[in-house]
């Protein structure tokens, strides 16, 4: 029941953030078309405006329409992850989409999250919603535990036997012991361990470059 609540909460949060962005897109489309109308209605002012202003307006409408399509398709595929409990997913593509749709939530905290391009296609059969919640929790824990975080990088490494996802916040001001202590005492770390247990993954804190390493078994 608790898991179900967490799923719903997570779903709601992301959907709300995306719908906010959609509202901004609509606002821009609306204002731009309104401006075009104004240009025609206030003909004197129209004459004062720079050349090709109408062309610029049309370009903006077109760009924002594309942005709207990207966001709604992101929302759509995210919503579909709840369709079945277990599904086969491409790890890199799933995480990439996940970062795209949650981008604004992290930008609100002044953090940019990116994933290093992974050319190897690796798929697993897993609970997609829990998988995404795990990724979200890892990113969130690096943001909430370390105030200086401005960028988070995700790296996927795949060998014949195992695939790992590494989360680093590029904060070299902390020593490994302090880093580990701060992470492990947080509630989010307990949440990460719980997700890993449910998904049959392994979570650890790495010493070479401090970060979270998730091993997909």
């Amino acid at each position: 029941m608790d898991n179900l609540n967490n799923k719903a909460k997570f779903f709601g949060k992301v959907t709300a953030s995306l719908s906010h962005e959609l509202q901004n897109v609509l606002a821009i489309i609306k204002e731009t078309s309104g401006l075009m109308e104004d240009m025609l209605n206030f003909s004197e002012d129209f004459a004062k405006l720079e050349d090709n202003k109408l062309g610029e307006c049309i370009k903006t409408i077109k760009n924002q329409a594309y942005r709207g399509v990207d966001l709604t398709s992101g929302l759509n595929s995210f919503a579909h992850t709840t369709d079945s409990i277990q599904a086969s997913i491409n790890v890199y593509e799933t995480i990439k989409k996940m970062i795209f749709i949650t981008k604004r939530l992290f930008q609100q905290k002044g953090v940019n999250v990116s994933i290093t391009k992974c050319h190897k296609s690796y798929s697993i059969i897993t609970d997609t919603v829990f998988f995404q919640m795990l990724i979200f929790s890892c990113i969130k824990s690096l943001i909430e535990n370390f105030d200086n975080t401005t960028t988070i990088t995700l790296d996927i490494n795949s060998s014949d036997k195992i695939t790992t996802i590494k989360f680093t916040n590029n904060d070299d001001t902390l020593k490994f012991d302090d880093y580990k202590q701060m992470l492990t005492k947080s509630m989010l770390w307990a949440e990460i361990c719980k997700f890993c247990e449910q998904l049959n993954f392994k979570s650890e804190i790495t010493a070479d470059t401090p970060g979270i390493l998730i091993t997909l078994k």
Binding site: N24, E31, L35, D38, D45, C57
Partner: peptide, 15 residues
């Protein structure tokens, strides 16, 4: 923070 929005609204208000 939505630059396109604010730029367009500004023009409409200037008119």
């Amino acid at each position: 923070d939505e630059k396109e929005f604010i730029k367009t609204l500004a023009q409409r208000l200037k008119i």
